[in-house]
Design a protein around this nucleic acid. Structure first.
Lengths: 129, 129
DNA sequence: ATTTAAATGCAAAAAAATTGCATTTAGGAG
DNA sequence: CTCCTAAATGCAATTTTTTTGCATTTAAAT
């Protein structure tokens, strides 16, 4: 993987494993990571790698349902709608976000440098059930 | 305070103190709370009260700068624009939020049950400087 | 292939969170 | 207002989570 080169950090087996896990699970706890790799990676190493990834801003730390989880920090900064039933995420079209942001700017003369937008609810597929 | 009656929980001195602290600090850690009240309230009581408040949804748990903080859960659920320079918050008009949410729903047939929207940047006053 | 700074594993320590139980207290009943 | 009881608190002990020091291993540059 080139993400290690990109961030100028050593590429180790342990780091790759943990990065892959975080990539493949959208939102995972330390405990869960440990469950998955306890045979191959020492817990203190997990902590050290998580901290490294946080510092390099490869991942972010969040709270979901009052639990701390870690997830990949996406560069392409999308915004999602998360279904509470099937837990699937769907991207909110960038245009919608932009239009919204433009409205905020126009109405208030702000210079917007960052935003955080998330919607939760029931998706169309789960709605019928 | 009537918040205790409203949520149907006993009103104790300790709960009042902690609620007031959370009210007066926007975003505080357990450690900080403990520092403030260690002479009057036992740490395990603090944990128990925080958990109660979370369960009753009087407060929420968040991550700010990779640290877990607790803050009052506002009923009037406003959305803010925060200025990075003067750190002042201004409310984004509810209408704007609603229009945006309606668009998301219309375009995708979702049932939106909650959202989280925050903008950051430079406000008009700080822009000139 | 060799070298070396950095990363890992392991054990031990420190810090954070939870628990059981004796004591205290809020708040309803009389 | 006083009494009563279930619930809340304090305290000490435990459990869980996170951090640390150091010996060993490893990535990657030479």
């Amino acid at each position: 993987m080139d993400i290690f080169r990109e961030y100028n950090i050593k590429c180790t087996k342990q780091r790759q494993i943990i990065l892959d896990i975080i990539k493949n699970n959208n939102g995972i706890t330390i405990k869960e990571i440990n469950e998955l790799v306890k045979k191959e990676i020492n817990l203190s190493t997990i902590y050290r790698i998580i901290e490294l990834f946080l510092n390099k801003e490869i991942i972010t730390k969040k709270i979901v349902d009052n639990v701390v989880i870690y997830e990949l920090k996406e560069k392409t900064h999308n915004h999602y709608f998360s279904c509470n039933k099937c837990h699937k995420k769907t991207i909110i079209p960038k245009k919608d976000i932009e239009n919204f942001e433009n409205k905020i700017i126009m109405n208030n003369d702000y210079e917007v440098t960052s935003h955080n937008i998330e919607f939760r609810g029931i998706c169309s597929k789960c709605k019928g059930k």
